[in-house]
Simulated assay, not measured.
Amino acid sequence: MNDNELRALIKQIVEEETQPGIPIGVSNHHIHLSEEDFETLFPGQKMTKFKNLRQPADFASNSKVTVVGPKGEIPGVRVLGPYRKQSQVELSLTDGFQIGVNLPVRMSGNLDGAPSVTLKTDAAEITVAGAIAAKRHVHMSLEDAKKYGVKLGDNIAVEVTNGKRRLVFNDVVARPREDFVLEMHIDTDEANAAGLSKDSIARIISDNN
């Protein structure tokens, strides 16, 4: 082992000992709805909670819809709460291939020019101009952001070492906010690429802005 390799090994050990692991949340395809669109798809119903999610105030609802594209459909896609100002459909790139939609990789809420899909229930169907593949990101508190030396919108590199396929994710967006809890969000395609399990964790290894 040469000096450079030894320094790299020491740096890795120090980082692993001093930096707590970041929990990884794997996002399956899901939908955010405006209150108006929810009432159209589920007339006379209220959005009810199926389970809480890690981020405060966010929850998975009991409501599900079918997402329809030019080449197919995906049934049973869960609606997440609370209501959003604008409806948004988050799918993996594999989902997009399946239904014939070319998904842009975007941060949540960035829907300009995003393709349209149809959402269908037994009661109604609507067209939503807002289908994206979510860009990977890390939620964190403002204290966490200070500790890691990052700010909102920074691109960071995050390493996953305890999956079946050790992997570094580059271009991960830092999303600090006062009420956020530390958690990395990736989709099912990315999780499968790293062979992640339920107890997998990640560590920030650099700022790659």
Rank of each mutant, 00 (worst) to 15 (best):
Asp3Ser: 15
Asn4Glu: 13
Leu6Ser: 08
Leu6Asn: 08
Ala8Ile: 03
Ile10Ser: 01
Lys11Leu: 02
Ile13Asn: 05
Val14His: 04
Glu15Ala: 12
Glu16Ala: 14
Pro20Ala: 13
Ile22Val: 14
Ile22Ala: 04
Ser27Glu: 07
Asn28Tyr: 11
Asn28Trp: 07
His30Met: 12
Ile31Met: 05
Ser34Lys: 13
Ser34Asn: 10
Glu35Val: 00
Glu35Cys: 00
Gly44Trp: 05
Gln45Ile: 00
Gln45Phe: 09
Lys46Leu: 02
Thr48Gly: 02
Phe50Leu: 15
Lys51Gly: 01
Lys51Glu: 05
Lys51Tyr: 01
Arg54Cys: 00
Arg54Ile: 07
Gln55Phe: 03
Gln55Asp: 06
Pro56Gln: 07
Lys64Thr: 14
Val67Leu: 12
Val68Tyr: 14
Pro70Cys: 11
Lys71His: 04
Gly72His: 10
Gly72Val: 09
Glu73Thr: 05
Pro75Gln: 11
Gly76Ile: 07
Gly76Met: 11
Val77Asp: 03
Val77Leu: 01
Val77Ile: 14
Val79Trp: 05
Pro82Glu: 06
Tyr83Cys: 09
Arg84Ser: 11
Gln86Ile: 11
Gln88Ala: 01
Leu91Glu: 02
Thr94Gln: 04
Gly100Cys: 14
Asn102Ala: 14
Asn102Tyr: 13
Val105Pro: 02
Met107Cys: 02
Ser108Lys: 04
Gly109Lys: 06
Asn110Thr: 01
Gly113Phe: 05
Ala114Thr: 07
Pro115Ile: 05
Val117Asp: 12
Val117Gln: 06
Lys120Asp: 03
Thr121Cys: 09
Ala123Lys: 15
Ile126Ser: 04
Thr127Gln: 11
Ala131Thr: 04
Ala134Phe: 01
Lys135Tyr: 01
Arg136Glu: 03
His137Phe: 10
Glu143Val: 15
Glu143Gly: 13
Glu143Ser: 13
Lys147Met: 06
Tyr148Phe: 15
Asp154Glu: 00
Asp154Cys: 00
Asn155Met: 11
Ile156Met: 00
Gly163His: 03
Gly163Glu: 03
Lys164Glu: 10
Leu167Cys: 09
Ala174Ile: 12
Ala174Asp: 01
Arg175Tyr: 07
Pro176Lys: 13
Pro176Tyr: 08
Arg177Val: 03
Glu178Arg: 11
Asp179Cys: 00
Asp179Met: 12
Val181Asp: 04
Leu182Ser: 04
Leu182Gln: 06
Met184Lys: 06
His185Lys: 06
Asp187Ser: 09
Ala191Phe: 05
Ala193Asn: 01
Ser197Arg: 14
Asp199Met: 05
Ser200Val: 07
Ala202Ser: 03
Arg203Glu: 02
Ile205Ser: 14
Ser206Lys: 14
Asp207Ser: 06
Asn209Gly: 14
